[in-house]
Design a protein around this nucleic acid. Sequence first.
DNA 1: GAACTTACCGACTAACCGGTATGTTACCAG
DNA 2: CTGGTAACATACCGGTTAGTCGGTAAGTTC
Lengths: 198, 198
Amino acid sequence: MVMNTRDKILHCIYEDMKLNGFQGLRPDNAIKKIGLSKGAMYHYFHDKPEIGYLIVEEIIQPEYLAPFIPLLSYEGDPIDYIQNNILQVLKESTDPKTLVLGSPVFNLVQEMAPLDEEFRTRLEIILETARDILSDGIRRGKENGTVVPHADPIQIACFVQSSLAGIYTLAKISRDINLFISNLEMISDVLDGFRQKS
Amino acid sequence: MVMNTRDKILHCIYEDMKLNGFQGLRPDNAIKKIGLSKGAMYHYFHDKPEIGYLIVEEIIQPEYLAPFIPLLSYEGDPIDYIQNNILQVLKESTDPKTLVLGSPVFNLVQEMAPLDEEFRTRLEIILETARDILSDGIRRGKENGTVVPHADPIQIACFVQSSLAGIYTLAKISRDINLFISNLEMISDVLDGFRQKS
DNA sequence: GAACTTACCGACTAACCGGTATGTTACCAG
DNA sequence: CTGGTAACATACCGGTTAGTCGGTAAGTTC
């Protein structure tokens, strides 16, 4: 991937942010790693918060939403999709190292939502979008008969999202990948309960 | 509650920590509010990390574990206990203001677990204890016939804890108390699925 | 090739923060 | 009354950090 200097700086600082959070992030220190100086950074960006907002919009948002997007046009059983393309993928792609770092979205929510309204609204949009995609998927599942009629799409969407958030939190502390997997399976089991028996 | 200066300092800094996290905490600034100075603080404590560890041990741990302890000697249906004495109490005691601040335990986990091993182990003990109490309760529920035999106590305990963690994370961003309540009810519903029909 | 712009460097500054050193006061023991 | 100590206050220090600013080299335009 060829990248201009601006985007290189953004991605480089994003990497630092994944490790240290936003407040712990030292932009100057981070961009040294790609052979650029503070001057370059302040040439492209106004200040530190602006960099944070842009990272959320340009990097974190598309990255987080990517696995949800295909559900928008998915015709089959939404529970299948969630289990196979979200939970299962998460399970397979997660190694102990990324586990302790958690999810960039939820980390930022945790750190910045109460402190900075600009961060909060941007992160809220991301999570709201994901929830909308999930609940809309469940709703269509009810329509095409793959999901039981009494299922509440919004509640299920919230459940999935909140469970994922919780799993990341616990993974940070227990560092036990089995606990992580067991929790993912529990979500899967709960979702099975909303399948329409044919 | 009458308190000596040492404990006053600890509680005062704890309040600041709830707002700003540990890294964002400014001890000097915090204790000004109770009319004490930096000198007093360093008279009672060695450094900032030590204060953090002591807050975890002396304030956060008992506060977080309090609702779980009675389950240790609870003879009835553990699912009843969890629903009525943990989830329900949480639901009733939570106002929008405390909602955005989240749970002190999970906040600290999120912020400090990857950065400071001393914090991590102390927080791990707290969450492990709560999980043990929960899973032991479920196990006894299986024994006395209130919980279905196929229930996995540890998995259910993890599920409850991780769900609670997730709920707090989402509450931080959506600030919608209804989403919080709906999520609590979802946990309740899932737990209902493990009741032994009599 | 002159005028101008873009991209970047790196020294510097002002503020802040954790921690220390040096008091000062109040009380208590002998 | 005196020496000692616990309980603080306050001035200060060293390091760090976000952000500024003057400069420069390499294009770009006309």
